[in-house]
Design a protein around this nucleic acid. Structure first.
Lengths: 240, 240
DNA sequence: CCCCCGCTTCTTGTGTACAAATTCGGCAGA
DNA sequence: TCTGCCGAATTTGTACACAAGAAGCGGGGG
């Protein structure tokens, strides 16, 4: 149950820092989303409206709105009359990465046709910034900084497609509880240097406006970060 | 504005037949969705909550829920504080078909690995039923019947993937105001017989559990129904 | 001892009242 | 005439009260 989380708002603010957010709608959406993405709300947990309202310091109305959006994003699921945190067994994560490879590959193809010079400059800047990432390998701050810049790089390419549908679908395919992914991908499989070498290739393909190259290198880039099944941790989550 | 639509509920029921639907939540969601898909609410139209509540014979609460879902599905868009019917210029429709080709192609690949005999039987039944479609070519009832069976065929394959994420994303990529598509695709470009020949090929590929074949034939199938830009009607809709 | 029925309780659905914000129009002054 | 400000009206956001439905529990009967 959620009773552990039905503590007063102060208790949550420490963990998820909802302090600066004024509007109840944002508090609810950001709060619940962060709770799911960070693993505070585990896969399969029941999303009771009353409890979430207490948790985010709002009333049920903004919570309801937030829950609809989260269901639409795939982070929550309808089941009967109430909602539960979506679960991501390994098979689903594998599927998501395969889909992302195709989807973002196609996005790169579109971007090759319509990317502007300013956007290319911004991509170059991001690549450069990742190059200069400070701190020793494996540090959590270094990994988080990489995650931020990596997201910005991919988001910039999505923007360059000029297609709301593409942006919509990709955003959805990318929204996964990142705590899960991080452990498996960003700490063992993914090599930041290799990843950024690929970013540079993608940038070159876009600069050359070579659509086929862009699609294929992006697809390969995503697949190179696809996690591999390792131990039982995934199946634990699978069963909830 | 929407004032033309803010007529009493009876006026709408005739057009969209919301009669059998009891629960306000369903009335609101189905009603608004149908209004968009059928073209009653045109691209770019303002989705005022009060007006929609009158239109569907409910209150603002279920309307709000419905609007959130529709935004998630890509049929409506947030813009500032209110919502508007999404617009689908030709470029977006083209992108959507290219995405569907990749997405459903991959779905067919997954299905080849996990489809059951019962599902194969059901697919065969649907193919057979399309073969026996009564009525002369070009009739709107014949086209609507084909649309229903065609949807069922594709939905069955989605089900066979056993992947909620795949089903979620595909559902979203498929939700387009079909009035637009129908005129262009199902009355001029798409040949029902050819389409069903392709369905039979897909079924054969799945039966053989040949994943590569399944992916490629499905992808080709979708692309064969991709509309081509013909006249100015698209751009009219594009500009709203 | 087990099963079934009804009740209680908890959760979500629905409607509505009120608050806040944005936009549009009008008016006055430069 | 144009501009800027102020106010009114419209629209969405928020909260709450009430209703309905479902699930779990206890008691009674077989």
């Amino acid at each position: 149950m959620l009773d552990d989380l039905s503590t007063p708002a102060e208790g949550l603010s420490e963990t998820l820092s909802l302090d600066g957010i004024d509007r109840p709608a944002d508090r609810a959406y950001v709060g619940i989303r962060r709770a799911i993405l960070s693993g505070v709300l585990k896969g399969g947990a029941h999303l009771g409206e009353e409890a979430l309202a207490r948790m985010t310091g709002t009333s049920r109305t903004p919570v309801r709105d937030a829950l609809r959006r989260l269901v639409g994003e795939g982070l929550a699921r309808d089941e009967g009359r109430s909602r539960f945190v979506a679960e991501f067994p390994y098979e689903e994560v594998a599927v998501i990465f395969d889909i992302r490879a195709r989807l973002e590959g196609y996005a790169a193809r579109l971007a090759a046709a319509s990317v502007t010079q300013a956007e290319l400059d911004e991509l170059a800047r991001l690549v450069h910034e990742i190059d200069n990432l400070a701190g020793p390998d494996g540090t959590s701050t270094r990994i988080q900084e990489f995650a931020r810049l990596n997201n910005a790089f991919h988001a910039q390419i999505l923007t360059a497609t000029r297609s709301p549908q593409m942006q919509n679908l990709s955003a959805q395919a990318t929204a996964i509880p990142l705590e899960l992914i991080k452990q498996f991908v960003w700490s063992q499989a993914v090599n930041i240097e290799r990843s950024n070498r690929q970013h540079r290739d993608i940038l070159d393909a876009l600069t050359a406006r070579n659509a086929n190259w862009a699609e294929n290198i992006m697809s390969a880039h995503i697949l190179s970060t696809k996690p591999t099944r390792t131990d039982g941790t995934w199946t634990d989550d699978k069963q909830g």
